[in-house]
Design a protein around this nucleic acid. Sequence first.
DNA 1: GACAATTATCGCATGTTTGCGATAGAGTGA
DNA 2: TCACTCTATCGCAAACATGCGATAATTGTC
Lengths: 109, 109
Amino acid sequence: MRSQKTQKRTSDALALVEALTGKSQEMADLVEQEQANLDIARKICELRTKAKLSQEELARKVGTTQSVISRLEDADYDGHSLQMLRRIAAALEKRVEIRFLPGPKLQPA
Amino acid sequence: MRSQKTQKRTSDALALVEALTGKSQEMADLVEQEQANLDIARKICELRTKAKLSQEELARKVGTTQSVISRLEDADYDGHSLQMLRRIAAALEKRVEIRFLPGPKLQPA
DNA sequence: GACAATTATCGCATGTTTGCGATAGAGTGA
DNA sequence: TCACTCTATCGCAAACATGCGATAATTGTC
């Protein structure tokens, strides 16, 4: 029964964030969390499509099902675990690196 | 755990960070080299001790208890979630960056 | 030794992610 | 149109992380 809420995925959310960043610093702070989620979702989607894999194919490599992959590529999903990220990375012959960078998104004043 | 969407514990840390703008870019490279290949537990412990905080003090900043911090700094514990990592990072005036690097485990000479 | 501060570990309740199937929507091609 | 592929979303059970207090264990100082 949905008519227009479909396909609102990482690409649309990316455009939204890109439009918001650069407007105001306050907005950027608010969007920070979503930006981080979006990065992960977009990275997974990019890596998967570059590997020419469908969600179901990647799911089989990872050892899960297609719906799980779709959930991970959802930009609004912020429940990522490092275990799952590493499983995804391993299936795509990558490794996950975690870095603690100084300051959340600071522009030099 | 509460959803990150409705959580606002990091607002004080964000406010602190806003006063520290200006020296993020140069420190990024140092942090990258120092922490590129360290384990998550060691990173957290290192950041905390460098900030001269006890586990209980960090726990209060993060919004949890000391035992949780101790668990996160346990090297055998690999069940980290990105939400918790971001909370830790925010309390330490840092941000978490996730990168997918090529190769399973490349050892720099 | 005694004392305080810090950290490690235990147990349990609660909340969240995962696993999985089922199904709907979107796109393509015949 | 139909058939097929791919993706999004729903619902539920199981597995897992967190929240929290309590309590050892460790470390340092006197």
